[in-house]
Design a protein around this nucleic acid. Structure first.
Lengths: 113, 113
DNA sequence: TCCATACACTACAAATTATGTAGCAATACT
DNA sequence: AGTATTGCTACATAATTTGTAGTGTATGGA
């Protein structure tokens, strides 16, 4: 089945052997669409299909893998209304939220590539 | 040679077709070791080998690819002292900096996986 | 109840990325 | 000149992501 390695504090992660929390979170968030999912869920609970649609047709395989990882990491949880951010997840969202404004500014100053 | 797609505002990125800045930055930062590199460079300029060592022996291939991408994105730049954060890069670091503290707390509350 | 939808996934093969080892050219030092 | 270090590149293997198709389960009428 799915043998993706779950980034876990204290255990080696993709790239990092020490399992420092920051490296663990970098690994977790560094996987495809992880931040996008958290970003979207801030708008409220979402079903699998809606999430998939929002994430510009992310493949169901990847979405499902990401959901499992984020759930194990206790950043999201499944409720009757769909997937939702946990308290931890919400805190994390608040931390990455400023990236939105920064990214727009960065994009504006982005030239001649 | 290396045909990695550079995440660029306004252009489709890995996963996102609209090229919204936040999605672009998620793609860029979501690649292996990207955030780790920025994290480390906050400690001052670093040479290729030192960076490699710091990033727990990231493969030179990946490091080089990441360096090229981050340089094109104007987040880092090469100086006589080694690779350094640009102003944009420093701003970005400041935004992700709180993740360190958050991650430690998250890791503490992380159980029964 | 039977049929049609819609949802939440799973299977699986192909494409893209990352890793790890080896090594090369350029500079610095002795 | 000889040696060491740095900044990479080559290349084969491994891991991740994608895309398409399809399965099983609920829900909603007719």
């Amino acid at each position: 089945m799915d043998s993706t390695s779950q980034p876990t504090p204290g255990k080696p992660v993709r790239g990092s052997k020490t399992g420092q929390p920051i490296m663990v979170i970098f690994d977790l968030l560094g996987r495809s669409w992880a931040m996008g999912i958290i970003w979207h869920l801030n708008n409220g609970p979402s079903t699998f299909r809606r999430l998939q649609k929002y994430c510009e047709n992310i493949s169901p395989t990847t979405l499902n893998t990401r959901i499992k990882e984020l759930t194990k990491a206790k950043l999201i949880i499944r409720t009757v209304d769909g997937y939702t951010l946990t308290d931890h997840g919400l805190q994390l969202f608040k931390l990455i939220h400023p990236l939105g404004k920064w990214a727009k500014n960065w994009a504006k100053n982005y030239q001649d590539i």
